[in-house]
Nucleic acid binder design. Structure first.
Length: 426
RNA sequence: GGAGAGGUGGCAGAGUGGUCGAAUGUACCUGACUCGAAAUCAGGCGUAGGUGCAAGCCUACCGUGGGUUCGAAUCCCACCCUCUCCGCCA
């Protein structure tokens, strides 16, 4: 959520910045809502103030045993106007809030301007793709090794799910454990295990709601309520600080969590239908930081580096992209994507996305700290994948394939693989 | 799922219809004393919003949402959550 003061005082600036995202801010609608709000709110508050004073006088008079009927008559006359004002406000404010909650974050000034992914800018490229003659993709490799089974997954659940078996299932687990251990041991993150089902307030806090409900899985729960399956650990982990006032001395807070992620993938029916690239359920190791506002830009660079460290340790070639204004997510002020090399696709594909949200999420969830002047101030939040486990498995299978269809286990993963060096057909 | 207890400021904890946004303690901030600290003393100290150049003034908030009333932390209804015991359960 943007700072309402910014909208009130610099709406043309806000509209200009949003335009670089391809978003048109309807300033006329905002100004109309704001004018109506101001009128109704001041008028209603004046009436409430009058009622409160009169009611106090009633109390005083009755305490003295005097007659209060004149005042009671006057206050009774306030009733209808007050009720009307309160009702009008109650009707207006949800509309106003919905309008505000639907405005995306402003891109940081360093974000390249562009309208879609073609406008993204390559920041660096690491590693050199190995020359692999006639590379097979992860589906052919995994199925031939008996470790990937999409047909059984369809029977059990449907399309966009996978069943993993044997050493490939273990490799998947090894990747997650390797990542968790690296981030906790070397990068100073605290491991957290969090709920996979969350409430509406949590989804609102990180920005999935109210605009992107169709991307989520919803689970009925209780009388007529429901919970949502998390689309990323960002949601439960960031919401750890929702409604909290943390001590500045504890900053930065750095959390890492390994969770499954659930996405309905509505609106992407034709894309990446083969294999494990785009699933309804996938595992991800997520990095989340809550930091002092002055530290957030440095923290974004560091956090992105932590994700890169995983790719480097696995010796997977990748490139780092600065997303352009038109390709960034709703809540982000700036995003770096890390794209890993996939030989069979002869292309780089997204494996991590690291963003600084500045105070956008913190404002939605009132996540604050007490600053040097003992005043509360909004935190900045940063998060990124470190990494998407399913896609990392895909990258390892494809980049470490041998001519005979076997897979060499990357050296750094062997401690989690019982020392296994090669995955071959049984 | 059943029975009971309870949800009040950063924390603890009073308050059962009328200057109660809320006693008191504690934490924290400022000042005094001190070489410094501790202890002590004095003052300050919730959140969100509105309005004003400002000092300030005003509104809302005592788990959430309704209701009763001139007036609700306090009374009524519904719901949510926490704790204890019982049941069930990985």
């Amino acid at each position: 959520m943007l700072d309402i003061q910014l909208l009130r005082t610099q709406i043309s600036f806000v509209a200009e910045r949003l335009a670089t995202r391809g978003v048109t801010l309807d300033t006329a609608v905002f100004e109309a809502l704001e004018a109506e709000r101001k009128q109704l709110q001041t008028q209603t508050q004046d009436l409430q103030a009058r009622r409160n004073t009169l009611s106090k006088q009633v109390g005083i008079l009755k305490g003295k045993g005097e007659d209060a009927s004149a005042i009671l008559t006057e206050v009774a006359g306030l009733g209808d106007a007050l009720k009307a004002g309160e009702a009008a406000l109650a009707e207006l404010m949800p509309r106003f809030d919905f309008f505000l909650a639907g405005i995306p974050n402003l891109p940081h000034e360093s974000v390249p301007v562009g309208k879609d992914e073609t406008g993204n800018v390559e920041v660096l490229r690491w590693g050199t793709p190995k020359t692999i003659a006639n590379p097979q993709d992860h589906v052919d490799l995994g199925v031939a090794l008996g470790g990937l089974d999409f047909e059984t997954a369809v029977k059990i659940a449907g399309s966009r799910f996978a069943v993993m078996k044997g050493p490939i299932a273990r490799l998947h687990r090894a990747l997650a454990q390797f990542m968790l251990d690296m981030h906790t041991d070397k990068h100073g993150y605290t491991e957290v295990h969090v709920p996979y089902l969350v409430n509406k307030d949590s989804m609102f806090g990180t920005g999935q709601l109210p605009k992107f409900e169709e991307d989520l899985f919803r689970v009925p729960h209780g009388e007529d309520g429901h919970l949502y399956l998390i689309p990323t650990a960002e949601v439960p982990v960031t919401n750890i600080v929702r409604g909290e006032i943390v001590d500045a001395a504890t900053l930065p807070l750095k959390f890492v969590a390994h969770t499954p992620c659930f996405r309905s993938e509505a609106g992407s029916y034709g894309r990446d239908t083969r294999g494990m690239i785009r699933q309804h359920q996938f595992d991800k190791v997520e990095l989340v930081q809550m930091v002092h506002p002055e530290q957030s830009w440095q923290a974004l660079e560091e956090l992105t580096g932590h994700a890169e460290a995983v790719l480097q340790a696995l010796e997977l070639p990748y490139r780092k992209m600065a997303l352009c204004s038109g390709d960034m997510g709703f809540s982000a002020a700036k995003t770096y994507d890390l794209d890993v090399w996939l030989p069979a696709q002869n292309a780089y594909r997204e494996i991590s996305s690291c963003s600084n949200f500045e105070a956008f999420q913190a404002r939605r969830m009132q996540a604050r700290f007490r600053n040097e002047k003992n005043k509360t101030e909004l935190l900045h939040t940063i998060n990124g994948s470190g990494l998407a486990v399913g896609r990392t498995l895909v990258a390892v299978l494809e980049n470490y394939q041998n001519a005979d269809g076997s897979i060499t286990v990357p050296a750094v993963l062997r401690p989690w693989m019982g020392g296994l060096t090669t995955i071959s057909a049984a």
